[in-house]
Design a protein around this nucleic acid. Sequence first.
RNA 1: CCAGACGGCCGGAUGGCCGCCUUUCGAGGCGUAAGCCUCGGGGGGAGGAAAGUCCGGGCUCCACGGAAACACGGUGCCGGGUAACGCCCGGCGGGGGCGACCCCAGGGACAGUGCCACAGAAAGCAAACCGCCGGAUAAGACCCCGGCAAGGGUGAAAGGGUGCGGUAAGAGCGCACCGCGUUCCCGGCGACGGGGACGGCACGGCAAACCCCACCGGGAGCAAGACCAAGUAGGGGCGGCGGGUCCUUCGAGGGCCAGGCGUGUUUUCGCGCCGCCGUCCGGGUAGGUCGCGCGAGGCGUCCGGUAACGGGCGUCCCAGAUGAAUGGCUGUCGGCCGCCUAAAUGCGGUCACAGAACCCGGCUUACAGGCCGUCUGGCUCA
Length: 118
Amino acid sequence: MKRRADFLRLAAGRRKFVAPGLILQALDFKAPENAGVRIGFTVSRKVGIAVARNRARRRLKAVAGLMASHAAPGYDYVLIGRGGTLTRPFADLREDLVTALRRLGLYREECGDAGMGR
RNA sequence: CCAGACGGCCGGAUGGCCGCCUUUCGAGGCGUAAGCCUCGGGGGGAGGAAAGUCCGGGCUCCACGGAAACACGGUGCCGGGUAACGCCCGGCGGGGGCGACCCCAGGGACAGUGCCACAGAAAGCAAACCGCCGGAUAAGACCCCGGCAAGGGUGAAAGGGUGCGGUAAGAGCGCACCGCGUUCCCGGCGACGGGGACGGCACGGCAAACCCCACCGGGAGCAAGACCAAGUAGGGGCGGCGGGUCCUUCGAGGGCCAGGCGUGUUUUCGCGCCGCCGUCCGGGUAGGUCGCGCGAGGCGUCCGGUAACGGGCGUCCCAGAUGAAUGGCUGUCGGCCGCCUAAAUGCGGUCACAGAACCCGGCUUACAGGCCGUCUGGCUCA
C-alpha cells in the first residue's frame, strides 16, 4: 500500500491491536471480488534515526512475508513499528503478528493462494 | 625498545535458506501496434562521512538594453592550483616546543567620526598622586618658591627599551645596541628579508565600532522545470491582435455569414463546438512519464611540477528508489573487553558513527577497532 489516503483511512478505522513488537491495524476494503490482502508499513521518527527506522521496517516486511497467507483476505493491513521492533527476537516478533491477527479475528489457517499485495 | 610528530588508508570476512530494486538476454502468453505480464539465465545495487546544509559551481525556470551606479552581503599578507570558491599547495610575519612540528593574526588608525569600562593624579594633550633634588629658614622641618619624571602605585595600555656616561636630582641631555621614522643600496615575481646613512622619539590601542579602499555577487530552486491523464466553473480582471455585414444605448454587446476544430468512410452535404495569444486573480490537482546519470568520471601507468595540480596513453561503464530497493533469519571465522590462569584453551559480553533522493568540488561535525609510510627525541647493543 503506497497512498497516504489509504493509511489515513485505516487509522480512522480504529480497529487495531498493540503487541510488544508491533502494532496492527486492519480494515475491510469492501471489495469481495478482489480476494487479496494489501499491507502497508509505518515507522515514525520516534523509533530512532534513519538507520534504525529502515531496519525496523525491513523486519516488519520479513515477518509479513512469512505470515501473509494466514491473514484474512479482503482486508487492508498496516504494520506500525515501535521501539521493541528492533530488539525483540525474530520468533517472538512473528508470534506478535499471529496474536494480533487472532485478537482482531482475522487469523486463518493456510488459505492457499491468497494473493499478496504490498 | 620507549616516548612523540606528521601524512595516507581500511572500516569486518566467508557460507546456507528465503526475498527486494534495476538492467540485459531467452522462452511463453496478451495486444493491430507501442508495450504489458509470467517463468528462467546473466550484470549492477549505500558512505567516508551518504550527515550538518556552511561556501563554490553545473543544470532548470523567472527577471533583465551590453552594462554601469547606488543599497545590501561576502572576501581581505604574497605567489601558484582550480570550472569556481571563504577551498587546496608553497611561501612571508608573530608565538610555542630540545626537536620532528604545531598554533595564531593578516588592506587602511596622518580621509573623517567615535570609543578606551573599573582602577588611577592623569587615557591622548600632555600632565604630576606618592615622591626625588635645590633654595629659603636655627633646622636633613609637614608650610612656601623653583627644578625633575629616574623610582613607587593603578591599569589591557602611562609618551621608546637596556646599559654606560652625565647631573643638585634628573631627562635622547650625550653615547652604544635594540625598536621606531625618513631615505638609499642589495636580494626576491612578490609578501618580505639583509645592509648603510640620517633623525633624537615626534607618530598609543580598537576597524569582530561606524567608516574608507580593492575584488566578488541578479533571484529562486529537481516539490526546479516539461508533458500526459484526471478534475473544477472552458469563471473573472488587464494588455495586445482579430474577415465581412446587420442591429445598436456606439461597448467586440448581440445576430448571420465567412473561417477554424471535431465527427459521420470520402466529396457535396449534415451535425456539434469555438474568437486567438500573453499575464494575473480565483478554483482544482499530490496519479503517471520525463528531467535521471558518460561524468570538471573511476582505475592503472608514464611525463612535467617542491607541491596543490596538469598532460599523454591504456582500460572500465560502476546505484537510481519515489509510503522510497540495496535486505530478513542463521552457521563458521575474526577483532575488542572481562573472568579462572603464568599462558593456551574455555566461558560470558560486545562489534563504531551512520542510510543515496538532481549531480559535482570543498568545509565542518560524528566515529569501535585496526593497518601502512616518513620523521623527531631518548635508552641499549654491535
